[in-house]
Design a binder for these strands. Structure first.
Length: 115
DNA sequence: CTGTTGACTTAGG
DNA sequence: ACCTAAGCCAACA
C-alpha cells in the first residue's frame, strides 16, 4: 500500500469524534456525583486536556441534555464566578441532586465520581 | 503552519 | 487558604 503523506497539518481523528467521546464520558457521570475537567479529559482519552474540556462545554449547544452541571474544577469549586447567572443555575442543579455546597465548594472526597 | 482562546491544573510562595 | 506563573491541549481563524 502506498502511504499518502499528509502534506501539512497533522490531521488525526475528526474533532467531532473526540468531542463525542468526551460527551459520552460526561453523560456517564452518575446522578449525585461530580467529575473534574481534568478527570474527564483523561477518561475521554485526551490526557492533560482539561482546558479543552472547558472549551467544549463553553461551545455546547444551548439545548444540550448533557449533565454539564456535574463538571467542576479539581478543587471542588464551580468554574463560573459567583453571583453570575450560570453559577446560580449550576448550584441549583447540584443541590437538586443532593450535592451540598460548603462555601461555594463541593466536598470532592464525598461526591467525586470514582469509575 | 502560526497565533489565540478557554466553564483548567499544578506547583510555589 | 489565596494568588501567581507556567504548563497543558484541541479547536479555530
Amino acid at each position: 500500500m502506498k502511504d499518502l503523506k499528509r502534506h501539512q497539518q497533522q490531521h488525526e481523528a475528526q474533532p467531532v469524534i473526540k468531542r463525542q467521546q468526551l460527551y459520552q464520558t460526561i453523560a456517564a457521570i452518575p446522578y449525585g456525583k461530580v467529575a473534574s475537567y481534568g478527570q474527564l479529559a483523561n477518561l475521554a482519552g485526551q490526557t492533560g486536556a482539561a482546558r479543552w474540556v472547558g472549551w467544549c462545554l463553553r461551545h455546547l449547544p444551548h439545548d444540550s441534555r448533557l449533565p454539564w452541571h456535574r463538571v467542576i474544577t479539581s478543587s471542588g469549586k464551580l468554574a463560573f464566578p459567583p453571583t453570575t447567572e450560570k453559577f446560580l443555575r449550576q448550584c441549583e442543579k447540584l443541590e437538586q441532586e443532593g450535592i451540598r455546597l460548603k462555601n461555594h465548594k463541593v466536598l470532592m472526597k464525598v461526591y467525586q465520581w470514582q469509575p
